[in-house]
Design a protein around this nucleic acid. Structure first.
Length: 420
DNA sequence: CGTCTTTGACCAGCGC
DNA sequence: GCGCTGGTCAAAGACG
């Protein structure tokens, strides 16, 4: 069985009816500092469930109804489509520049077409389905992420899992996106589309310090509430309007929540602040452009920011404060990034690279996980063992599916680089 | 003395 | 209209 076969087998084993958990965890996460709003009807209509009642399935049924299986013929579709059928519109498996790569590869001799290229074709097919699904959802909701143009290959980039800099690329802060009055064009576009004047970007991370060093200079100008929420203003210039809020998580005092209310400084950014600024800008841009679904998702960020010193997967959650949506980047999920996420290439092995990452997942002291999955400390014996372990992990914790998607995506990216 | 933090007052928006 | 909440202001005090 080649790697694609393995992946197909793993994906087929995923319980299709498992719609909760995983990327929806954040929506019910009581750690969230912001509450569901009572205004912004356009966002309210699409907001995720928050009440216990909704957690018990009502909202999930509503979301399932958006993808009635009898209306979408995916029965014969390959496994990736099954994830889409679940509403996993945040699935992203393609890599930057894949379309160009595919065109080139089509001219090559047939014998040289690898499993990876086959996988890319399958992904392209599923992306087309994704376009149809998103359009379908848009028609039903009257909002949400704008439907993608099926004729525009650039728009076929799947949403939700997003490698901001491209996996494995040199860790260089991306240049700020094109701006309109200081806002990225995407931001402006989605603000206009969704009637959103502002989006906030928050970081959740464990820190004993009262402030996470981010390169800017801040001055405290207010404090409210219990637990206390501190308000800071950028003081690099007296006219800079950038502010942020800092508070401890009510449930876990070791978690510091930093919310950036503005990020359009009226002065040149200090070099130390540029990585963080780019992350904030990108995260906001991704949300406003629909790359991060309302339900949140997983993104992969390469960064030199003190907050995120290396490439790592980040669980994003979307909340809705009284004033605007907040994209929260949860940095508490991974105490240390797996080596694969900052080592671009893996030595060749008889075992697919997927497995070594599963081992990483397996070895993490994940406090949210329930019963222990079968131990694999001695390493895989065969691919059936791998499949069994993965199945157990998925059944044990639906969130593992999210992790798996990130791993698969990363593998594809690395494989593509290896071919280049 | 300048800078920064603390803290109560004040304001605006919203739901009831 | 009232109360609640989020956010900001500004006076007072602390600190180096």
């Amino acid at each position: 069985m080649d790697n694609w076969g393995l992946l197909s087998k793993l994906l087929q084993l995923m319980p299709l009816s498992s719609h909760g958990g995983g990327h929806k965890r954040s929506l019910n996460d009581s750690h969230h500092i912001n509450e569901i709003p009572n205004k912004r009807a356009c966002l309210e209509a699409a907001r995720p469930p928050s009440s216990t009642h909704e957690q018990n399935g009502a909202a999930e049924l509503r979301e399932l109804d958006l993808f009635p299986r009898e209306n979408i013929p995916l029965r014969e579709a390959p496994p990736v489509a099954n994830l889409l059928k679940e509403g996993r519109t945040d699935l992203q498996l393609s890599s930057t520049g894949s379309e160009q790569s595919m065109e080139e590869e089509n001219e090559m001799d047939g014998e040289k077409i690898s499993w990876f290229e086959e996988a890319q074709r399958k992904i392209a097919e599923q992306n087309k389905e994704l376009v149809a699904l998103r359009g379908f959802m848009h028609d039903i909701n009257g909002r949400g992420s704008p439907p993608l143009s099926g004729e525009d290959d650039d728009d076929l980039m799947p949403k939700g899992m997003h490698d901001i800099n491209g996996s494995g690329t040199p860790i260089v802060p991306p240049p700020p996106p094109p701006t309109i009055n200081g806002c990225s064009r995407d931001v402006v576009a989605r603000e206009e589309d969704a009637n959103v004047e502002e989006v906030r970007v928050a970081f959740r991370d464990r820190s004993e310090a009262s402030l996470i060093p981010d390169g800017w200079r801040w001055r405290k100008y207010g404090q409210k509430g219990k637990p206390p929420r501190s308000y800071y203003r950028c003081t690099i210039t007296s006219t800079c309007l950038v502010r942020k809020q800092v508070q401890r998580c009510a449930q876990d005092k070791s978690i510091l929540i930093t919310t950036y209310i503005e990020w359009n400084h009226d002065h040149p950014l200090p070099p130390a602040a540029m990585p963080t600024a780019s992350i904030i800008s990108e995260a906001a841009s991704m949300f406003l452009s629909g790359s991060i679904p309302i339900s949140g998702g997983l993104i992969i960020i390469n960064s030199t920011s003190p907050m995120m010193p290396r490439c790592r997967p980040i669980m994003t959650t979307i909340s809705f404060s009284a004033r605007c949506p907040t994209v929260t980047l949860d940095l508490t999920e991974y105490p240390d990034p797996p080596p694969q996420f900052h080592a671009p290439a893996q030595p060749q092995s008889a075992v697919p690279p997927l497995f070594s990452r599963l081992v990483y997942y397996e070895q993490q002291p994940h406090t949210e996980r329930g019963a222990m999955a079968p131990s694999c400390s001695e390493g895989p014996h065969n691919l059936d063992d791998v499949a069994r372990i993965v199945t157990d992990l998925i059944l044990d914790n639906p969130k593992f599916k999210i992790e798996l998607i990130a791993v698969i995506k990363s593998i594809f990216s690395e494989a593509q680089q290896g071919d280049a």
